[in-house]
Design a protein around this nucleic acid. Structure first.
Length: 419
DNA sequence: TCTGGGGTCCTAGGACCC
DNA sequence: TCTGGGGTCCTAGGACCC
């Protein structure tokens, strides 16, 4: 059996832990740059505010219902997420951290246990130790565990735990579930499924898997099998290294300044390279992209990106800064109001299995390697960006808006909760 | 005026090999 | 007049997830 443990309205719940006055009050947490609502309390969901609603479109509702609004505080959420993981690890040794607020838990060898009771204890412990509300769904496959979790959330009974094991109960659950609610069936697929008369999850489960595989893809067949209780989606307790590393940010304010774009790109490159070295990889390709504000009616639109291949894979920030500079020069057009610059590292490989150039086998000099090591160590100890490349500049005029951020309650001595 | 960021997987089609 | 069969790799684009 596989369980899915998911924190309810995670970001909102994190805010509530350190601000209990927010209980029973509608609360929203915004995306980066204070753009959209990405986490909503149940009260807010009941008001009909949708996931991803732009802040400026819901200002009236916010006033009217006295909704508390927060900028996202990823340092806090990330730390709380680790704490949740630590508690889950007390309940099984087979855990796949699927996202910041969700983990799959496998119970191979736990046959002697009453899993529902086991998970009820887990829910209680997370609530008691962290103050975070979680729900758990238990079922024979990941897709069904997701569905069980969905019902655990909406029904709110049985200590927030719902186990779907008998065929009878599984069918009951699927009969009332629109096909679009299934994990892996998004908007496009659910429209197409509806058009051939498949409206509920139960109908999909009973459809002919070979026909649907032909029409859609192998993923569709997997989903059908998963709905039948046959586990087809691998349980991956030890996810491989990232295959690409992306860093992008919208600017707080649009800008047509080349220098500003260059500094922002350099900042993103530096961050991505830190991640790259942390996972002991090297990258061969760098993509740089720039974009005006696509929502603007008045601004002239322009977006472009370019991928540069390094002569050899590298993890030396300097190589990528130079490449980024070339790339930006080639796609930058003056006169446009830019809103975003982003970079991506791709064609990643393991640092100790690099295919070297036959004629020129000196990928990163020892000197550069040491430099990166020292910089990473210093920044690790004294704070991000303490040492950085001059290319990043000093003004950081492009930083995103973040006007309503709560404190780093759990990670920063200066910002501990005061009583 | 104001609209996020970071990922993965699959497929078709082109190009190539023997 | 008649022109095979089996395979791999790469890429762009689409779909999905949180």
């Amino acid at each position: 059996m596989i369980a899915l443990c998911d924190v309810n309205n995670f970001y909102v719940s994190c805010e509530r832990v350190f601000n209990p006055a927010l209980e029973n009050r509608p609360v929203i947490v915004l995306s980066n740059n204070d753009g959209c609502a990405v986490a909503r309390s149940n009260e807010v969901k009941d008001l009909g505010i949708k996931m991803g609603a732009p802040l400026h479109q819901i200002q009236d509702l916010i006033k009217q219902h006295n909704i508390a609004v927060f900028s996202s505080n990823y340092i806090l959420y990330g730390d709380m997420s680790h704490r949740v993981d630590d508690i889950i690890a007390l309940y099984s040794d087979q855990i796949e951290n699927y996202s910041i607020d969700e983990s799959f838990i496998r119970f191979a060898g736990f046959g002697y246990l009453d899993l529902t009771k086991h998970c009820q204890k887990l829910v209680k412990q997370i609530q008691q130790w962290l103050g975070l509300p979680v729900c758990v769904g238990i079922a024979p496959s990941k897709t069904l565990a997701k569905i069980a979790n969905h019902y655990a959330k909406s029904l709110k009974v049985n200590g927030n735990v719902l186990e779907l094991s008998s065929d009878y109960h599984i069918k009951q659950a699927l009969a009332h579930l629109p096909v679009g609610e299934i994990w892996g069936i998004g908007r496009r697929l659910s429209t197409q499924l509806n058009s051939i008369g498949i409206e509920t999850a139960l109908q999909l489960r009973e459809a002919d898997r070979k026909t649907l595989r032909k029409r859609f893809s192998v993923n569709m067949e997997r989903t059908i099998m998963e709905l039948r209780g046959v586990s087809c989606i691998e349980f991956d307790a030890d996810p491989e290294k990232k295959k690409e590393i992306v860093c992008t940010r919208s600017f707080g304010q649009k800008s047509s300044d080349y220098q500003l774009l260059k500094e922002a790109a350099a900042y993103h490159v530096s961050r991505a390279c830190v991640t790259l070295r942390q996972q002991q990889s090297v990258a061969q390709c760098l993509t740089v992209g720039i974009k005006t504000n696509p929502f603007s009616q008045r601004d002239q639109q322009y977006s472009n990106s370019i991928t540069i291949q390094l002569p050899q894979p590298s993890d030396f920030t300097g190589h990528f800064l130079a490449a980024a500079s070339h790339a930006l020069k080639r796609i930058f057009k003056p006169g446009f109001q830019y809103k975003k610059v982003g970079i991506m590292l791709s064609n990643l490989s393991d640092i100790d299995s690099v295919q070297q150039d036959l004629f020129n086998s000196q990928p990163v000099s020892n000197k550069n390697q040491h430099l990166m090591q020292v910089m990473d160590q210093i920044n690790d100890r004294y704070g991000k960006g303490k040492l950085r490349s001059g290319t990043e500049g000093f003004a950081k005029q492009w930083v995103m808006r973040s006007d309503r951020k709560s404190s780093e309650y759990t990670t920063n001595w200066e910002q501990l909760f005061k009583v």
